[in-house]
Amino acid sequence: MTAETTTTVTTTIDARGSFCPGPLMELIRGMREAEVGDVLAVLSTDKGSKADIPKWVGKAGHTLIGVFAREGFDEIIVQKVR
């Protein structure tokens, strides 16, 4: 649960400390293992993630719930649609 959303996160992928494209690759791996409807949160310290991950999410047809700036990292929350 986050301050900005009432969505319950199914899985959190902590990719902090991982460099581009690590967080995106971790999310893609997580999405393959997730069920449709699951909500995944990616924690990333890589500045590129907040641009690259939403682009991939859009291309793959999933739902981007939001990109939230946390203390020292970004949290990107995504719902698996297909």
């Binding site: 581009c20 494209p21 995106l24 690759m25 590129g48 690259d52 682009k55």
Partner: peptide, 8 residues
């Protein structure tokens, strides 16, 4: 390319 550009 698996990422958002041609090379990492």
């Amino acid at each position: 390319s698996p990422i958002n550009r041609a090379f990492t």
